[in-house]
């Protein structure tokens, strides 16, 4: 099943009045359960593409279909609701809410969905148990290591059972061993729950795990290779 379709996406920024073409006409389709890595040199448009796929940014031209729904012209609140239900985000800097404990961070998106306190606590514990971070439940972000924070961020991203997880340089701030463990975890989630993972990264160990690798150069897809077919 197709979860993302981009139709001739262009993105142009203005840098002090000078137009910068970040994306120059991207067409792609991603199906449920894929484990995609978008790689490329700095300035190639990886993060811009990921942001557009995540409906965080709007394309200058073209259409974005998420789960067959055109999100290009949706209002800010409609897009927020869509992101809340269908997408999960993992950021390079973890970006947990510093005033909340780990379990409260995981519960947060469920709270936004209006799920009652008992159910969200139960679900958050279940996910944290799956990710082996149950013992971090009552810790605040500043009491956790980078790897622990990123695991909590993964828990937050998957807790609402989204169909797509977008991860922007998730291992960039982690040492290689912690990064590898995190990727193991994501592969497991992909395998066991058929979750679609889309990474933007130039970290070799992320690229090595790709089952579909897209190389971006100067705002265009230079290559799109299926490295290993989705199981």
């Amino acid at each position: 099943m197709e979860v993302i379709r981009l139709k001739h996406i262009e993105k142009t920024y203005s840098d002090n009045g000078v137009p910068v073409h970040a994306l120059r006409g991207i067409d792609l389709s991603i199906s449920q359960g894929e484990f995609v890595v978008i790689a490329g040199p700095s300035g190639s448009g990886k993060t811009t593409l990921l942001n557009i796929m995540g409906a965080l940014d709007k394309a200058t031209e073209g259409q974005v279909f998420l789960e067959k729904e055109d999100v290009s012209d949706k209002s800010k609140d409609e897009i927020a609701a869509f992101r809340l239900e269908k997408l999960g985000f993992i950021f390079q800097a973890y970006n947990l809410i510093p005033v909340l404990t780990a379990i409260e961070n995981v519960e947060f998106t469920m709270m936004l969905l209006g799920i009652d306190e008992d159910r969200r606590r139960e679900r958050a514990l279940e996910v944290m148990r799956d990710l082996d971070i149950e013992e971090l439940a009552e810790k605040r972000p500043n009491e956790m290591s980078g790897g622990q924070q990123q695991r909590v961020a993964v828990a937050r991203a998957i807790v609402n059972n989204p169909s797509i997880i977008l991860a922007d340089e998730p291992t960039a701030n982690l040492d290689s061993e912690t990064g590898a463990n995190l990727l193991d975890l994501m592969e497991k989630m992909n395998r066991e729950h058929n979750l679609t993972f889309i990474f933007s990264s130039h970290d070799k160990q992320v690229i090595d795990r790709a089952r579909r690798l897209m190389i971006l150069k100067d705002g265009l897809i230079e290559s799109d290779t299926v490295v290993a077919p989705t199981e």
């Binding site: 965080l56 609140d77 927020a80 609701a81 992101r83 985000f89 970006n95 998106t109 936004l112 937050r156």
Partner: peptide, 16 residues
């Protein structure tokens, strides 16, 4: 600002 950006990204509505 960054924190608010994250909250919006993960689905918090403007009104909240």
């Amino acid at each position: 600002i960054q924190e608010f950006g994250v909250l919006m990204a993960i689905g918090m509505k403007n009104s909240i």
